[in-house]
Each structure stands twice: as C-alpha cells, then as structure tokens.
C-alpha cells in the first residue's frame, strides 16, 4: 500500500431547500479508487464541479467518505483518534491564500502548525526557517502577509504546511486565483519540493500546462475518474479532453492539428522544444529522402 490509498470512495450529500426539506442527493465523488506511492507527483484534473476538490478534502480527513475507505500512511481516515496524525502526514494547501494565512507576520504563520502540534520552541524556529527557505520566502519572514503578492502568499501557505513535516502535500487548486507570474512561482516551488525533497505531491488544478511534469494524472468528471495515465498518455487524447471541458496546452493542440493534416508526429507532445525538434527532424528527413 502506498502513502495514500483510496478504495471505492463515494461521497454523497443531501441537498435541502430553504425550509430544510430534502430536495435530492448529490453524489460529488463516485467510486474513486487510487493508490499513490511515496515520492510521486500526482495531478488531479477536472473542470469546476467535477468533484476533484471534494475528493481532495478526503485525503486530509476534513470529509469522510459515505462509502469506501481512505488510508493515509496506513491510517484509516475514519478513525477519530488518528485524525491529527493524518493531518500531519498529509498537509493541505487551499485555493485562496488570504483565507488560510492565520499569522500577522509570515514567520508566525508558518509556525502555527508546529505550535498546534506541540513542537518545542527551538525546533519550531528551525522548522520555520527550513520551510521558508524551501519555498524561497525566507527573506520575507518578517513581512506582513497582506503586503505580499498572490504567488508569495501561496508559497507562505505551502511553507506553513511543510513546517508540519508532512510526508505528502495536497494542493487544492493553489493557482486558481493567481496571475500567470504567481502561477509559475508556485508551480516551480511545488516541483522543487518533489524533485529535491522527494515530497509526495498531489496537485489539484484545471490548468493543463501545470501537470506536464506529473508522474501520473487523474482526470475527474462527474465525481468519477474519467481518465488516468502519464501526461503524455492523457494529452494524446485531445478530443476526449475537450469533451471533459478541459483544454490542452497550445503546443499539444498544434501538434494534434498537424497530425490531422497528415504529419507523422508522435502522440501527446508536451513542450515547445519537443515539437520544434520533431518538426526539424521531419523537415530534414524530407530533404534526405529527396
């Protein structure tokens, strides 16, 4: 069993009208199973309302499955007595940076988690320092979060989770409210965590260009896992992605259009460099044949 394992997880909630009468039942997550190994970079994609955020909240024991089971590092999220260990193991970063920063000063916010866990003072300082350094925010440690840019705030939120020394970090649409610069900053920080520290990362997003470095991608639709595979495998199915209200990066789309015109390109091209190289090879190949 990997660090996180979900088995047939279903989550339903009851919709009520204004008087409190039951209107119906919505199945937000529908029979999802997945197994995540330590050190992997996992991306979960889906359009708004696909159930991806609801699922993510199960990994941190904020929500409990109606049916099925979630294990975090071997602990069942249903067990009340393990809940704090689970939250410590699988740290969670949310969408809106303003609504998850508690401290009035960057370093105080990063220290909040360890304080709650009862970590001795001296160690809190060590953890705060290393976490802020890991996301490149150490020089801002004395600043007020209100004066930071969106990307910087989100990196502080990530540091706040890192300071709890989790084994795995779940990011629930961390870039949805950021501008392109902020998005790049945050994604760079997340990738570094995975590459350098070997942290297991679960990134939930709807931006396709953010997942091209992931080891594995899950695509959710109507609460179900609609597609899964490596980014290359997933991106090679352009038509299916479009049906799922998702986009593909422009490069991939261009390669796909060129394929349709009869150019023999491989499936699922992900980066500009790749496409340029492939096209050059084609061109040179053509010349040689002549």
């Amino acid at each position: 069993m990997g660090i996180i394992k979900a088995e047939n997880v279903t989550f339903e909630y009851i919709r009520r009208d204004e008087e409190g009468n039951v209107e119906g039942i919505t199945t937000a997550v529908d029979n999802v199973s997945l197994d995540i190994e330590q050190g992997q970079f996992i991306a979960i994609l889906g359009h708004n309302g696909s159930g991806k955020s609801t699922f993510a909240k199960h990994l941190n024991a904020i929500l409990h499955p109606t049916e099925g089971t979630v294990w975090v590092n071997g602990m069942n999220t249903r067990h009340e007595e393990d809940v704090w260990d689970i939250r410590q193991t699988a740290g969670m970063v949310f969408q809106n940076p303003d609504n998850q920063i508690i401290g009035q000063i960057v370093e105080e916010d990063v220290g909040f988690g360890p304080e709650n866990m009862g970590v001795p003072t001296k160690e809190i300082w060590e953890r705060v320092e290393e976490s802020l350094k890991a996301v490149g925010m150490y020089e801002f440690r004395k600043h007020s979060p209100n004066k930071l840019s969106g990307g910087q705030k989100q990196r502080v939120s990530i540091a706040g989770v890192l300071a709890m020394h989790p084994k795995c970090i779940v990011l629930d649409e961390p870039t949805a409210m950021l501008d392109p610069n902020g998005r790049k900053e945050v994604i760079r920080a997340i990738r570094a965590l995975n590459d350098v520290e070997g942290m297991t990362v679960i990134l939930i997003t709807h931006y396709m260009e953010e997942i091209i470095y992931a080891d594995k991608v899950f695509i959710m639709d109507k609460g179900k896992v609609a597609m899964e595979g490596t980014p290359r495998e997933v991106f090679s199915q352009v038509e299916k992605l479009k049906k799922l209200r998702l986009d593909v990066p422009q490069v991939t789309l261009l390669a796909y259009e060129l394929q349709k015109k009869g150019l023999p390109l491989p499936d699922g091209i992900l980066t500009t460099e790749e496409l340029v190289q492939e096209l050059l090879d084609l061109k040179n190949g053509n010349l040689e044949r002549r």
Binding site: L254, L258, K261, G262, L263, L282
Partner: peptide, 14 residues
C-alpha cells in the same frame, strides 16, 4: 493562432 500556425507549418514541411 493554432489555425494560422498549422497552415504555415504544413506548407513548409509537406
């Protein structure tokens, strides 16, 4: 745009 680029590249390579 993708359309313009497709056209250009096809012209050049094919």
């Amino acid at each position: 745009t993708i359309e313009e680029a497709t056209e250009q590249i096809c012209l050049e390579i094919l």
